[in-house]
Design a protein around this nucleic acid. Structure first.
Length: 267
DNA sequence: AAGCAGGGGACGT
DNA sequence: ACGTCCCCTGCT
């Protein structure tokens, strides 16, 4: 189907480091696996997109996944037009959308993300899926279930490149499979409670918890601080980032800053 | 409380 | 070829 999505930039979103399961097929076309759903999506013009799914799949699944019901115009409008770094970042990355991803996949992906580059994370996630994820109709693999990773041998996880994170992923998968932490229930908690719940998982610290809140639980106020954001804050906000100006959506700005900083560095 | 170990790949030199 | 860095956490 063809659909008009004003302001959305697929390339920026696919390469934003939120999700590690976009495969770029051409300049404007990507393949994506999210949960048990697969999608070929292509950006044809500024606002026009081609998706190989039905109207009902789009309405029931992808519209939410790509966060098309959030008003990004008003978020962009909240940024002062002062020619500052944030305005430049927003000007570059304003087409980015905060994806609404599966919680378990996001938990594991970001446990793996610590001290790794984005290409390395993608490689790990891909290997984990091929080894432990269930087959999809296309012959590709879904991201593994908590049960599958809980059963996995440490050596098998290590073979996916997890390194010292093998224990974190294994224990976290067990806690979730056994219901010690219920990822569904976290949707009902407020931001602070949700963060506390996630911090119980081994391998999930402050930064990773913020990423999970932002990319799986759609808590747009969560503001993950990684090494790129740390540098941006030190260089451009030495007196601190003005969170009070952006109540409830600073996390969106964090993504603008992250992508812009990486862009300037040629990544 | 600060400092540090920790797989291995990506990246720059 | 080689050192540094990587969307960091947990231990000391």
């Amino acid at each position: 189907m063809q659909v008009q999505i004003p302001g959305f930039n697929l390339q920026l979103t696919a390469n934003s480091g939120q999700c590690f399961r976009f495969l770029q097929l051409s300049a404007s076309t990507y393949h994506l696996i999210a949960g048990k759903q697969e999608l070929f999506i292509s950006q044809q013009t500024n606002d026009l997109f081609n998706l190989d799914c039905s109207q009902s799949d789009f309405r029931d699944h992808w519209q939410q996944y790509f966060d098309l019901d959030t008003d990004y115009q008003s978020i962009l409008a909240s940024i002062p037009k002062d020619g500052g770094y944030l305005q430049k970042a927003a000007n570059f990355a304003g087409g980015l959308r905060i994806l609404q991803q599966d919680a378990f996949e996001t938990v594991v992906s970001f446990i793996i993300s610590q001290r790794k580059t984005i290409p390395a994370i993608k490689s790990c996630v891909s290997k984990l899926s091929e080894r432990f994820g269930e087959y999809l109709p296309s012959g590709k693999h879904a991201f593994p279930s908590a049960e599958a990773l809980a059963r996995a041998e440490p050596g098998e996880l290590a073979a996916c490149g997890l390194g010292y994170r093998v224990g974190y992923v294994s224990q976290t998968a067990r806690m979730i499979a056994q219901g010690v932490v219920n990822l569904q229930d976290i949707h009902c908690l407020d931001d602070a409670q949700a963060k506390q719940a996630l911090l119980q998982l081994p391998g999930v610290g402050n930064k990773v918890a913020d990423c999970i809140l932002l990319f799986a639980y759609h808590r747009l106020g969560a503001f993950p601080v990684d090494v790129w954001i740390e540098r941006v804050l030190q260089e451009h906000y030495p007196q601190g980032f003005p969170f009070h100006v952006y109540p409830g959506h600073a996390g969106v700005l964090q993504q603008y800053l992250f992508c812009y900083a990486r862009h300037l560095a040629g990544r």
